[in-house]
């Protein structure tokens, strides 16, 4: 006996995997949006060298980037469970999806902060000085001078990080969250056609990645056109 591949079942699994795209989207978009806010703050604190926050941001980034996502999810689960026990709540009500969302957010904030910092530092220092010299405050210089110029560098980085977050969210499967892999694997109950199920999940993930790449390429093009229309 060699390899056996039930193509019909594979196609039906693709249909199943398709219905789980909203969950993947939730597990990607929420961490990315909240992560961008936190990561952006951390990056700004480092670029503008705010005293205590700067070193805290550094420690945060090192820790979140060097611990595997699965471990962070499991640790987060226990931390939240500890809170539940401490306040006398029933840990059975603990929503694993929320745990996964929180740890994905924490991780993506770490990665995004490094990405945003790289983008902010790609703007030459003369621009910061020029903004100050015309009397702008820190916030104004960031908003009107630095951010727009850092976009061409920031967008591709953001794209690769969002693909990374989407792929990392699949580790939620190991915590028992019903997401794309779990959803397709569940349908194999009784027939053991796991290979077809996993292949279907892989195809959908691949399609999603290619989709994100398309969107990012489109944004890059738009930004480049905007930049060319500017004064420079």
């Amino acid at each position: 006996m060699g390899i056996s591949f039930d193509f019909k079942f594979f196609l039906s699994e693709i249909g199943v995997a398709f219905t789980y795209i909203p969950i993947v989207a939730l597990l990607t978009i929420v961490p990315l949006t909240v992560g961008t806010l936190i990561g952006g703050g951390l990056a700004l604190s480092r670029v503008y060298k705010l005293r205590i926050i700067q070193s805290a941001a550094r420690v945060y980034v090192i820790i979140t980037r060097s611990i595997p996502i699965l471990l962070q999810m499991l640790l987060m689960y226990f931390v939240i469970k500890g809170f539940y026990d401490y306040f006398g709540l029933n840990a059975a009500h603990l929503n694993k999806m929320v745990t996964v969302l929180i740890s994905c957010t924490i991780i993506s904030a770490g990665f995004l902060s490094e990405g945003i910092r790289a983008a902010l530092l790609s703007v030459e220092s003369g621009q910061y000085e020029a903004a100050y010299s015309v009397g702008m405050t820190r916030m104004q210089s960031a908003r009107y001078v630095i951010f727009p110029q850092s976009l061409p560098v920031a967008i591709p980085i953001f794209g690769s990080i969002s693909i990374g977050v989407m792929k990392a969210s699949s580790a939620a499967y190991l915590l028992g969250v019903v997401e794309l892999i779990q959803g397709t694997a569940m349908k194999t109950a009784g027939n053991y056609k796991y290979l077809e199920a996993y292949c279907a999940a892989a195809v959908i993930y691949w399609a999603l990645t290619l989709g994100i790449e398309r969107v990012i390429a489109f944004c890059e093009k738009r930004v480049r056109i905007k930049m060319r229309g500017g004064v420079s």
């Binding site: 990392a168 290979l195 999940a201």
Partner: peptide, 26 residues
Amino acid sequence: SFMRGTPILIQLFICNLALPAVIWGI
């Protein structure tokens, strides 16, 4: 593109199922 576009977890699962079967078949 495939390797970078799919989670490593699925690749592990697929490799564990498909590789032995392919070698078995050959």
